[in-house]
Amino acid sequence: MSGADPTKLATNPIDDWTWLSRYTEARIALGRCGPGVPTSAHLGFQAAHAEARDAVLKPFDAEQFAADVIARGWHALAVHSRAVDRATYLQRPDAGRLLSPESEALLSEPRALADIALVVADGLSSRAVQVNALPVLDALMPLIAASGRRLSPVIVATQGRVALADHVGELLGASASIILIGERPGLSAADSLGLYLTWMPRRGRVDSERNCISNVRQGGLAPEDAAKQAADLTARMFQHQAAGVSLARLPQLPAPEHGGS
């Protein structure tokens, strides 16, 4: 990605201002062959795009993820949105925001009350979830437990959008929701996880009513730091009974660890 990579300079002719690459990660000083991009840079671009495409298209193994959660001694339930497959998911965001009838029935069964609905969904990058969701949970679970608030089982969702947490939170009667979800991959990072927090999650909530922690990955915001921010934001949500833009405008808790959104 950076111009310091000598392999991409092997092509003739070289753009002899590779030193500019110290100022930006942008793909500058690539060199050229006629109007074309040298082969190494050309294929390097394809490799980055392939990684992003695979992150979007590779199925999320929800059963395995739920098993990993259970193996840590936590509860987990696997659910599915109304988007039956990836093509539907990509074209019908409305379907990804609602639980399938079977999953709706499952979450409607009587269970212990929860203050916080915790959801993990594939979103646009199954890889982000596979790589970064458990490290976030490892750091987040003890922080929530220490706050004394009751947590739902980890709801592991396939073909889920952010607003799926509204449907989940509504069925569980939760006061707040936290969803960990794969972000749209870029060429430079295909494994970014996002965390969205919503107060009184109910169907029909809009984006301005949520707080977001994004770019969670190794090399971005570390999972442990993201978990701390999420725990702080959760505490503020319960203190102010609000989330989103309105929460961002409210004063910080005394001595917060991080600002948050």
């Binding site: 942008a26 050229r32 006629g34 109007p35 840079a41 870029g186 430079s188």
Partner: peptide, 24 residues
């Protein structure tokens, strides 16, 4: 866009090379 890769908006557009290509 340098190398067709917008590192801020995270999408792919046309590059300086593409402009050179279409002009040629």
């Amino acid at each position: 866009v340098p190398g067709a890769d917008d590192i801020m908006l995270n999408y792919q557009s046309t590059s300086f090379h593409d402009a050179l290509y279409v002009r040629k």
